[in-house]
Amino acid sequence: MFDMSTRRLFALYLGLILFGVSVALMVRADLGLDPWDVLHQGLARRTGIGLGWIVIAVGALVLLAWLPLRQRPGLGTVSNVVVVGLTAQAALAVVPDPHPLGVRLALLVLGIVANGAATGLYIGAGLGPGPRDGLMTGLAARGLQIRWARMGIELSVLAVGWLLGGTVGVGTVVYALSIGPLAQFFIRRFHIIDRKVSFNG
Rank of each mutant, 00 (worst) to 15 (best):
R28L: 09
Q41N: 04
R45Y: 03
L86H: 00
I192F: 04
P181Y: 05
T119Q: 10
Q71D: 04
Q89T: 02
L12Y: 11
G171M: 00
A140L: 05
T137G: 10
I187W: 10
G134W: 08
L135Y: 07
G171P: 03
A125D: 02
A65G: 05
L39S: 12
P98M: 03
G52F: 10
T137L: 12
I146A: 15
R7E: 14
S5F: 09
V168Q: 03
R142V: 09
G74Q: 10
L155K: 01
K196R: 15
L51P: 03
R28M: 14
Q71E: 12
A60M: 10
Q71W: 10
A93Q: 04
R188W: 02
V83E: 06
P35I: 10
P181L: 03
G128D: 12
T77Q: 07
I187M: 15
L31P: 11
I56A: 09
G50K: 12
R46S: 12
I187E: 08
F10W: 04
G111T: 11
Y13L: 13
A60N: 06
V84H: 03
T87H: 01
F185M: 13
D194W: 13
A125R: 01
L67H: 04
Q145H: 14
R195I: 14
Q71M: 15
G42E: 11
L43C: 03
